[in-house]
Deep mutational scan, measured.
Amino acid sequence: NLYFQGLKYMVPGARVTRGLDWKWRDQDGSPQGEGTVTGELHNGWIDVTWDAGGSNSYRMGAEGKFDLKLAP
């Protein structure tokens, strides 16, 4: 699974964008943008601060869902 392989790169400072299971509307800005991981992966959740200004926790394994992917 590509998403599980990418988890080791989901570290503080990593750049991310919305992924396969995104369901959080425009939390990442409008139009959709990139963000920066600000915390360690914990119980399948990870913290992100978006360039647009907001921050929140997103699923990276929790509930079998992956809200994020590494930015290109």
Rank of each mutant, 00 (worst) to 15 (best):
V16A: 00
S55K: 12
P12S: 09
D51A: 05
T38F: 07
D26S: 08
A52M: 10
L20F: 11
W22I: 04
D21F: 03
I46L: 12
L7S: 09
W50K: 00
I46G: 00
F66I: 05
W50N: 00
E40Y: 14
G19T: 05
F4G: 11
P31S: 08
L41T: 07
D26W: 05
D26P: 05
G13L: 04
F4E: 14
R25Y: 12
G33K: 07
V11S: 09
T38H: 06
A14M: 09
F66S: 03
N56W: 12
G29I: 05
T49F: 08
L2E: 15
G39H: 08
D26H: 08
L7W: 11
A52I: 06
G33F: 05
K23W: 06
Y3C: 15
L68F: 02
V16S: 00
E34P: 14
G64D: 09
I46K: 00
M60G: 01
L20Q: 14
Q32L: 10
N1H: 14
R18H: 05
T49E: 12
L68A: 00
S57H: 10
G64I: 06
D47S: 14
L41C: 09
M10C: 09
Q27T: 06
T38I: 13
I46W: 03
R25S: 15
M60P: 01
D28Y: 03
W24D: 08
Q27E: 12
R15M: 03
D28P: 06
A71M: 10
S30W: 11
T17M: 14
G19L: 06
Q27R: 04
G39I: 04
T17A: 10
A62P: 00
V11K: 11
Q5H: 14
V11T: 11
G53I: 01
G44C: 04
G61F: 04
L68K: 01
L20D: 14
K23L: 07
I46F: 01
Y9C: 15
G33W: 06
R25P: 09
M10S: 03
G53W: 03
K65S: 09
A71Q: 09
G29D: 06
R15V: 03
N1W: 10
Q32S: 14
G35I: 02
D51H: 03
G44W: 03
T36N: 03
A71S: 11
V37F: 01
G6F: 15
H42W: 09
S30R: 12
S55D: 09
R15K: 08
G35S: 00
P31M: 08
D21P: 03
Q32F: 12
W45C: 07
N43A: 10
D67W: 01
W24S: 06
G35L: 01
L2F: 11
R18L: 09
M60H: 05
F66E: 02
F66P: 02
L68W: 02
R59Q: 02
G6K: 11
L41R: 08
G44P: 00
L70N: 04
R18I: 08
L68T: 00
L68S: 01
T49M: 11
D67Q: 03
K23T: 09
D51T: 01
W45V: 02
G35Q: 01
V11W: 08
L70E: 05
A52D: 08
I46Q: 01
P72I: 12
N1V: 11
A14D: 08
V48K: 00
Q32Y: 11
G44T: 01
D21Y: 06
H42A: 12
T49H: 11
K23A: 10
